[in-house]
């Protein structure tokens, strides 16, 4: 048995998302194992980001159930709760395909905002904070320390007081991951973390993701197009095509799955002919129907 079947942290069941007449995700079910790095892959427009947005509450799915099971046994039905509560209570953090940092605020401030809910509680909803109570100052120092630790892990400690918008692209990507991690998530969702990174930065990212899995004990769910990276770091790969799951298993299994090869990784020449013939039949059927 595999981790994702034995001990899933996230269970997606019969997830369907329709935008008007367009079915972006169609009856999708999969599990994310606790302590796994799970990759969600598929060609452009396969519905990967839609799945992400459903899991993190930015979309409300048309049908289906998404269950998040926390370490302490609490269960959350993510399709029912608002997005900010998913991050706060269900402990699912995310990053965005197009980086969404607070550009006009410093790197350190970005990491402090991620700890908002804890700080808010410790400042007695700001009232204690105005009078500078001791417990709040302690909590603020602890938050700065945590942010500092993360900045050291992502090698940005020297730029802590610079505005986030001034960072180079690769650093912004890492900062966004660190910011998501500062919310103490149990599941971290990364939308194309390696997009736009050079090979050296990608290998650094792999190290970071491994450390998140092994040191922080946080499960990672990621969307990625860089196949070599996906195959290298993933414990579990789910393949989507046109909103439907076409394969699900570990990296070796998926790599050798003929459906994945046909849909995604490329096929042999003779198979191309078969595929093209099938496509023609499909088109005719489409035209007649």
């Amino acid at each position: 048995m595999t981790t994702w079947q034995d001990n899933p942290i996230l269970t997606v069941e019969h997830l369907t998302m329709r935008f008007g007449g367009l079915v972006a995700v169609d009856d999708l079910s999969f599990e994310v194992g606790r302590g796994d790095i799970t990759a969600l892959i598929g060609p452009n427009g396969a519905g990967k980001t839609t799945v992400f947005n459903c899991v993190t509450g930015f979309y409300k799915p048309t049908e289906g159930r998404i269950t998040m099971k926390r370490e302490n046994g609490q269960e959350f039905l993510l399709e029912r709760i608002p997005d900010f509560e998913i991050a706060h209570h269900a402990r699912v953090a995310r990053t965005f395909q197009n980086i969404r940092l607070f550009g006009g605020m410093t790197v350190l401030e970005n990491l402090m905002i991620a700890q908002h809910n804890k700080l808010m509680k410790d400042s007695v909803f700001s009232i204690g904070g105005i009078f500078g109570i001791k417990s709040f100052r302690k909590s603020e120092n602890a938050s700065v320390k945590k942010a500092t630790e993360w900045l050291e892990r992502i090698n940005l400690i020297d730029r802590a007081d610079d505005p986030a918008a001034d960072l180079p692209y690769g650093d912004q990507r890492r900062l966004e991951i660190a910011r998501a991690m500062c919310t103490n998530p149990e599941l971290l969702c990364l939308d194309e973390p390696a997009a736009g990174l050079n090979p050296r930065e990608t290998s650094e990212l792999n190290g970071l993701l491994h450390s998140i899995r092994d040191i922080d004990k946080t499960a990672v769910l990621l969307i990625e197009h860089d196949m070599s990276m996906v195959m290298e770091i993933s414990d579990h790969v789910v393949v989507l095509d046109y909103g439907v799951k076409i394969s699900d298993g570990d990296a070796d299994f998926v790599q050798n799955d003929p459906r994945v090869i046909a849909a995604y990784l490329g096929v042999d020449d003779d198979e191309v002919e078969v595929a093209e013939a099938e496509a023609k039949v499909g088109q005719k059927e489409g035209a007649t129907s």
Binding site: F58, D83, M120
Partner: peptide, 19 residues
Amino acid sequence: RAWEALREDEIACRSLGIN
């Protein structure tokens, strides 16, 4: 800080658990 973050990017705020 949350006010200023809200001015910068509301969606990112929500992803960080800010009401």
